Amino acid sequence: MKVFVIDLSVCNGCYCCQIACKDEHVGNDWMPYARPQPDTGQFWIGLAEKVRGHVPQVRVSYVPNLCHHCDDAPCMEECKAEAIYKRDDGMVIIDPEKCIGCKLCADTCPHNAIFFNDQLNLAQKCTGCSHLRDSDPEEWTEPRCVDQCPTEAIRFGEESDFADFIAEAEPYRTEAGTKSRVYYKGLPKKFIAGTLYEPNDKEVIIGASCTLTDEESGEVFTETTNNFGDFWLENLKDNRSFTLTLEKDGYSRTITGLTTDIDRGLGDIPMDMKG
Rank of each mutant, 00 (worst) to 15 (best):
2 K>V: 10
3 V>E: 08
8 L>P: 02
9 S>N: 15
10 V>C: 08
14 C>H: 13
20 A>G: 03
21 C>F: 11
21 C>V: 04
23 D>I: 08
26 V>A: 06
26 V>G: 05
28 N>Q: 07
34 A>D: 10
34 A>T: 14
34 A>I: 14
36 P>R: 10
50 K>C: 01
51 V>Y: 08
52 R>S: 12
53 G>R: 06
54 H>Q: 15
55 V>F: 15
56 P>V: 11
57 Q>G: 03
58 V>D: 06
58 V>Q: 09
65 N>V: 12
65 N>K: 13
67 C>V: 01
68 H>F: 10
69 H>E: 07
70 C>G: 07
71 D>T: 10
71 D>C: 07
74 P>F: 15
81 A>I: 05
82 E>G: 01
83 A>G: 11
85 Y>S: 10
93 I>F: 08
94 I>P: 00
94 I>T: 12
96 P>G: 05
97 E>C: 01
103 K>G: 04
105 C>W: 08
105 C>R: 07
107 D>N: 12
110 P>K: 11
115 F>V: 00
122 L>D: 03
132 L>S: 02
144 R>K: 13
150 P>K: 09
151 T>L: 01
160 S>R: 13
161 D>K: 13
164 D>A: 13
165 F>R: 06
165 F>P: 00
170 E>Y: 03
175 E>M: 09
175 E>Q: 14
175 E>R: 12
177 G>T: 12
180 S>L: 04
181 R>V: 01
182 V>N: 02
182 V>G: 02
184 Y>T: 01
184 Y>N: 01
185 K>Y: 06
189 K>A: 15
191 F>S: 07
194 G>R: 14
194 G>H: 14
196 L>F: 11
196 L>E: 05
202 K>S: 11
202 K>V: 10
202 K>H: 09
204 V>Q: 10
204 V>C: 07
207 G>R: 04
213 T>H: 02
215 E>P: 00
219 E>R: 11
224 T>E: 12
224 T>Q: 10
230 D>T: 11
231 F>I: 05
233 L>D: 05
245 T>N: 13
246 L>Y: 13
251 Y>G: 00
251 Y>P: 00
253 R>W: 15
257 G>I: 03
261 D>F: 09
264 R>A: 07
265 G>A: 07
266 L>Q: 07
266 L>M: 14
269 I>H: 04
272 D>H: 07
